[in-house]
Amino acid sequence: MAIRIVRIPALSDNYIWLVHEPDSGETIVVDPSEAEPVLAEADRAGWRIGAIWNTHWHPDHTGGNAAIKAAHGATVIAPAAEAARIPTADHLVGEGDRVALGAVEAVVMETPAHTAGHISFHLPAEQALFCGDTMFAMGCGRLFEGSAEQMHAALGRFAALPPETRVYCAHEYTLSNARYARHAEPDNDAIVERLETVERAREAGEATVPTTIALERATNPFLRAATAEQLAQRRAAKDSFRG
């Protein structure tokens, strides 16, 4: 792996991703919910943040944009379909566009459902995916502005990525997702085993992301949904699940 990726916990359960390409010295940050921990980590590492990549407009993904821009002169790269809701945006992107981090290239994937214009950033050469709130470890985002059909299509695109692809989602939701996954697929031994692993990790105060496409293929009931209808049923059940 040519790039360095630093996980920065923020707010109550967010993760911000600070990404550095050592050959060029370039650094970007993905979905900064707040600026202070990002600026502190960049200062500690001696990195200057050249760009901010936003996956969608929600404030817990864009709240740090303005302060990071002011401190580092960073360019905000954001989904074109949500331009009106991200006033700090400088460069708007959509399906198939490419953005660079030094010599490393990210391909923009339009993955709407959680929000109407949600995008994800796939770095093929680095086998990395920054998917915001479209997919979580063992879960998916709520369907606030889109449909189950859109989410099913987006997760299908993720499932088709190489199994070793590391998935950098934006929240620590894995324990509650794993408990629902066991309910949704009680005979799935891989889910039972992963739930035990996640419980141990959270009891020790450890993070459970990044995950991988291979793990999600085996244990994510939303990515594993055979149809959009089944995904919709599972999403509705998860929204009210209290297990």
Rank of each mutant, 00 (worst) to 15 (best):
F136W: 12
M138T: 00
D133R: 01
T115P: 01
H118V: 00
E110S: 14
H118W: 00
E126C: 08
E110P: 05
G117R: 01
M135Y: 00
A113W: 03
A128K: 11
V108I: 15
F130R: 06
G117M: 02
M138K: 02
E105Q: 15
L123D: 02
A116S: 09
L129H: 09
F136T: 04
A128T: 14
Q127S: 13
A137E: 05
H122N: 11
F121T: 01
P112V: 07
F130V: 07
F121Y: 15
V108F: 05
M138A: 08
T111S: 11
P124F: 09
A116C: 00
M138Y: 08
H122K: 03
C131G: 08
D133V: 00
A128D: 13
A137V: 00
M109Y: 10
P112Y: 03
F130S: 09
T111M: 13
Q127T: 11
A128M: 10
H114V: 09
A116R: 08
E126A: 15
F136V: 03
T134S: 14
C131R: 03
M138F: 14
L129S: 12
T111K: 04
F121M: 06
I119D: 04
M135F: 08
A113I: 03
G132R: 03
T134H: 06
M138R: 00
M109I: 10
A137S: 05
A137Y: 05
F136G: 07
T115G: 04
M109T: 02
C131I: 15
D133C: 09
G117I: 02
A113C: 10
A113H: 03
A106R: 08
H122Y: 15
C131A: 14
T111Q: 08
A128L: 13
D133G: 01
M109S: 07
M109P: 00
G117E: 03
Q127W: 06
V108K: 02
E126G: 07
H118I: 00
G132Q: 03
A116I: 01
G117C: 03
I119H: 04
H122E: 12
L129M: 10
M135L: 11
M135W: 00
T111W: 12
E110T: 14
S120Y: 06
V108T: 11
I119F: 06
E126M: 10
A137W: 00
T115A: 06
A128N: 11
L123E: 00
T111G: 02
S120W: 07
E105M: 13
I119Y: 08
M138Q: 10
V108N: 04
P124D: 13
A106W: 07
I119G: 04
E126V: 11
A113E: 06
C131M: 11
T115I: 06
M135C: 14
L129T: 09
M109V: 01
A113D: 09
M109W: 14
H118Y: 01
F136E: 01
H118K: 09
L129W: 09
A125N: 14
H114A: 07
